[in-house]
């Protein structure tokens, strides 16, 4: 009963927040709505007994990613409204609606999942973070290390790209920029 109430509340809030994100003209409103939607998504993870995933969702998305967006937006002019010229607005909703319809039909259809066996079944009496840790550091150790290297590469790329003088790279110069620099 409470699960149903929580599910419908969370889904209503999440859908509204994400809809604001994709339709808002103001970048700050869009970012705030996205952060709120992320928090509500973590509610689903707690409902689904994935405690550790919910905590990671809050820390990484609303902590790290949103802070990164907030700092990145200092470089942009976010007080002005975003001007967007949508060529075919009806086509957008038609395509998205069709995709949603196909996805819903495919997901609601009876799943031939009787033969699916749990590869790493959840055991009774073990808390979720502990079980996650055991599986992550035994069966998924190599992907975990690869993900660590990927995050390191992303960090270095972020530092280098946002650093000084990167806007004067010679490899991407266009002709008028050359003449503009020459005229100065």
């Amino acid at each position: 009963m409470f699960e149903a109430i929580a599910f419908y509340t969370f889904s209503a809030i999440t859908i509204v927040m994400f809809w604001i994100t994709v339709t808002s003209k103001n970048a700050l409103y869009a970012m705030s709505a996205l952060a709120a939607g992320m928090i509500m998504i973590s509610g689903f993870f707690f409902l689904l007994d994935a405690d550790f995933l919910g905590v990671v969702q809050i820390i990484v998305y609303t902590g790290a990613v949103m802070a990164l967006y907030a700092f990145g937006m200092m470089f942009f002019d976010t007080t002005r409204d975003v001007k967007e010229r949508v060529r075919a607005p009806k086509l957008v909703f038609l395509l998205s609606g069709m995709t949603a319809l196909v996805l819903v039909i495919a997901l609601v259809a009876p799943i031939l999942g009787d033969h699916i066996e749990a590869l790493y079944p959840m055991k009774e009496g073990i808390e979720n973070p502990q079980a996650v840790g055991v599986v992550l550091f035994t069966k998924y150790l190599v992907p975990f290390e690869v993900a660590a290297v990927m995050l390191l590469v992303a960090m270095i790329a972020g530092i280098v790209l946002a650093g000084k003088k990167m806007d004067e790279s010679l490899t991407l110069k266009v002709e008028d920029e050359f003449t503009q620099k020459g005229a100065q």
């Binding site: 998305y61 967006y69 990145g72 749990a118 790493y120 959840m122 992550l136 993900a147 972020g158 790209l161």
Partner: peptide, 29 residues
């Protein structure tokens, strides 16, 4: 009753974080 789904969700979170770092850097440039 399988933990594999949660594992993949973790890796998606990691991919999203690195995507944001690189994407924001490119956008600033």
């Amino acid at each position: 009753g399988d933990l594999t789904g949660q594992m993949f969700a973790f890796f998606i979170v990691a991919v999203a974080a690195s995507e944001v770092a690189v994407g924001l850097g490119l956008m600033i440039v």
